[in-house]
Amino acid sequence: MVTPVSPIAQPAAHDVKSQKVCRLDEVTRAWIKKNIESEIIIEAENLDFYYGKVQALRDVSMCIPIDGVTAVMGPSGCGKSTFLRTLNRMYELTPGAHAQGRVSFLGQDLLKADPAAIRHHIGMVFQRPNPFPKSIYENVAYGLRIEGVRRRSALSDSVEESLRHAGLWTEVKDRLRQSAFGLSGGQQQRLCVARAIAVRPKVLLMDEPCSSLDPKASARIEDLARELSDELTVIIVTHNLQQAARVSDNVAVFMAGGELAEFGTTRQVFDDPQDPRVADYLRGRFG
């Protein structure tokens, strides 16, 4: 396997290892195309991120392929959730947070676009299920309603389709008008997935979507992530290594300080990590 040598100046430490991290030059693109055989949907270029004065991401450059599930892993506090929240600009809800660098989504700079428009294309599912205090139907229809869809039939069709996709339709079809709070935690989380995909986003961000669920409900969410990846790009943050191994095609591993330590196919990273810190991290968890 040929590792590309990036022309972009690299951090001093781990020089050799971090070359595996894709850099956004032609060589890297070619590498991605060859090794992952996919188009690139999101590219981050020299991304720095700060909460006030605290730096949460340090010079992150990576590409996310359009196909499959990309898992973002790392020890807690390494900036993996922050990275995810940069992709749909959700960090802007936190006062004092700001990002520097370039993140392009299909070629356009995300950090300069209108956040509301971006979030139409890049949906999100959160750590804890957060349905609105509305009916199941209204939860799923929410995104369409704010887009201005009024026609009943269009709404109902879309609600049904999304719920079917989220694997929730048979469970809730008789109680669409009841409050979403009556559902179990796992069902609520799948409802949140249905809500997010109802507006047909190109990317679905999942921020530790199973962290508040029991193993059975988690397994359903994992299956869902895999199924959905046929139609859209799924990026999932997880601290659960087995989960990443089960679900993802590609893995990005962040290390403390917000540095991207390794990016590659799941197989590569798990079998043969290049960065010794990543190796320790993977071993520590498995051993």
């Binding site: 809800l93 971006i118 979030r119 949906g123 959160f126 957060n130 929410y142 704010i146 949140c192």
Partner: peptide, 22 residues
Amino acid sequence: PRSYREASAAMGATHWETTWRV
């Protein structure tokens, strides 16, 4: 709760849409 607002913002709602609808 903040989580309601986050959910709505993540759906691409403007701030006013979040306020008015959620």
